[in-house]
Design a binder for these strands. Structure first.
Lengths: 234, 234
DNA sequence: CCAATTAAACTGGTTTACCAATATTATAAA
DNA sequence: TTTATAATATTGGTAAACCAGTTTAATTGG
């Protein structure tokens, strides 16, 4: 039997199973915020999985702020009540691989915001870095070379100039997935690369002029192709 | 000497150091996309750190799409050129703990979007779950009980109804950090809890009526206090 | 009977040893 | 010389052993 396909998602399946079991345990034992979870060893024995699996599941719940591990002491339930905890665990379990449309839609949202904020907040140093990124992009395109990277770096430079560390992080998180999917879906159109130069220049000028409205609008134009793709196709 | 404060960030410091060393290695050896990185054992010896540290650093770079580990084979550089790789590594290294202002600003952005999308896309089932969350919130507030969790769950229900898995994930990621910071900063005002009911109801009605503009507007009103805090204070 | 002290057990974190799959080299047959 | 095969070395992943604190239980002195 060809079960190879399944093995790839095995880890996730196991982890989700453990997370839901931990949730059930908290509910069944009526554990409250601040209470201590059974030790990793006990859990691994109880759930019949490796301690590594338990640790990974706990780390994931810790990432979302539901648990807190303290060395040589134990793992504790964060200061969050049962209702919210159950709701968030359900959400975490329901997290699936993002579809391309979601990714694009979210990226456009983030980029419009970063463009606006960059126009409002960019420092002189930001401007220099933006111009460098822009020139690197232009040079590649004019030489008819592949400029995907330079394009990406320009957008990340905008995110940096926006002066919002959270937005910057989120951009960084979804960008690689965008790229891989982008190539897979063949949405990118090389013939539009030269049009891309003008669009990039317009965005840069708007940020330079500190015109947030124009920056957002120019970014919108830049994403119009993707935008249509995102909202037309089903 | 009191170095206790440092030990907390030791891991991150070590990891960032390893990441930058990997970057330098790739640059120095002129490694290209698809090339194989030295084995984890060699790297741990070369950088004089544990193999665990190396693995964590690699996993982080893998998360951002820069590397790809293949079991029993090796770790390979993703299909991304040197320029972009260096730029993204710099960004990753520069990632700091998000400040509260960034968090709030980003949350507002995401919530305005999810409210709009929820109004456009909510299913009948979404509506039921939204109403349940709303009622749970109202009940708590009318009993003068703490309703932070129910508030949170209502907002997460909106995110779910927005039908965008990426947005949903991002919301889930920043929410816990918001909560902890929220309590720490004492921004929340209990006296406004009853006003919150009306605001929540308005948002719900807008989503029910499938009025995206109103939904966004009502959400904006709901965040007005936070909004002012975010944009007034420095 | 109680408080203080000590010893044992237990904790999350870390290092080490091991595994199965892969990649490389050595060998041999043609 | 070339190709097919077998033996060896190397790989990322994983399970087990170990560690330094912490927590609990036992012991002891009053």
């Amino acid at each position: 039997m060809k079960l190879d396909i399944l093995t790839k998602n095995d880890n996730r399946v196991v982890q989700n199973s453990i997370i839901s079991q931990i949730r059930d345990l908290i509910n069944f034992k009526n554990l409250e915020p601040g209470d201590k979870l059974p030790s990793e060893r006990m859990l691994s024995e109880k759930f019949e999985v490796s301690r590594n699996n338990i640790r990974e599941a706990i780390q994931k719940l810790e990432f979302y702020g539901l648990l807190k591990s303290i060395p040589q002491s134990g793992t504790f339930i964060a200061n969050i009540g049962g209702v919210a905890l159950n709701g968030m665990v359900d959400d975490i379990l329901r997290l699936e691989d993002p579809d391309f449309k979601s990714l694009v839609e979210t990226r456009i949202l983030l980029e419009l915001k970063t463009a606006r904020l960059a126009a409002l907040r960019r420092s002189e140093d930001d401007l220099i870095q933006l111009e460098e990124a822009l020139n690197a992009y232009k040079e590649k395109v004019l030489n008819s070379e592949d400029a995907v990277e330079e394009d990406l770096l320009f957008h990340l430079a905008i995110a940096k100039a926006a002066g919002n560390s959270t937005l910057n992080t989120l951009m960084l998180m979804i960008t690689p997935e965008i790229i891989t999917n982008f190539e897979a879906y063949h949405v990118c159109d090389k013939s539009q690369a030269r049009a891309g130069i003008i669009e990039h220049e317009n965005i840069f000028e708007a940020i330079k002029e500190q015109d947030p409205k124009k920056a957002k609008e120019m970014m919108k134009v830049h994403f119009s192709v993707l935008y249509q793709y995102c909202y037309s196709k089903k």
